[in-house]
């Protein structure tokens, strides 16, 4: 009997390594309520390196591009102080690609977000119930990097 239990545990562990037998089972693992302190970022430029290193594609330097990407339907995230990136799936009751100003108003801001945290297959997801505090843009990195990309501010004609 002990051997059978061990084998079943091994089988279950194998399934878990595969990401769970189905999405529904993974969802059943549930979420935890968290409070995350961090910066709202454009996740594509941050993860892909398409515009430069991670320090250049956040903050004031990258703010206009971050607005473009959010309006363009690219997932927005919260980069926590420890570097963990949380993909935002909902914010204050709104879906992230809804045609409203909520996400754009928060882009590049340093915030504390309270909400539900999910993890699946290596990605952290966050359903932001409310923004507890907002310090605005505190990362004034345009002083180091200029604007990223360099055409973000149109040339005067």
């Amino acid at each position: 009997m002990k051997s059978l239990r061990l084998a079943m545990a091994g089988f279950a562990a194998g399934l878990l390594l595969l990401g769970g037998p189905s999405g529904q089972v993974a969802a059943a693992a549930g979420a935890e309520t968290v409070e995350i302190k961090g910066e709202i970022i454009d996740t594509w430029c941050y993860l892909s390196g398409v515009m430069g290193g991670p320090d250049a594609v956040v903050g004031s330097a990258h703010h206009t591009c971050a607005l473009w990407c959010a309006a363009g339907g690219i997932p927005v995230g919260v980069r926590a102080e420890d570097g963990t990136v949380y993909m935002v799936l909902k914010i204050e009751g709104e879906d992230p690609l809804a045609p409203s100003d909520t996400i754009l108003e928060l882009q590049s801001d340093s915030i504390v977000a309270r909400g539900q945290h999910y993890v699946r297959d290596g990605v952290n997801y966050l359903v932001v119930a409310n923004v507890v505090s907002n310090d605005g843009i505190t990362n004034r990195n345009h002083e180091d990097f200029g604007v990223v990309p360099d055409f973000a501010i149109p040339e005067k004609k």
Binding site: S22, T43, I74, R120, D121, V123
Partner: peptide, 15 residues
């Protein structure tokens, strides 16, 4: 059975 987040399409204008 892994959930893959799709972040970007094939266009080059922040889409």
């Amino acid at each position: 059975n892994k959930l893959v987040m799709v972040s970007k399409n094939a266009q080059f204008e922040f889409n």
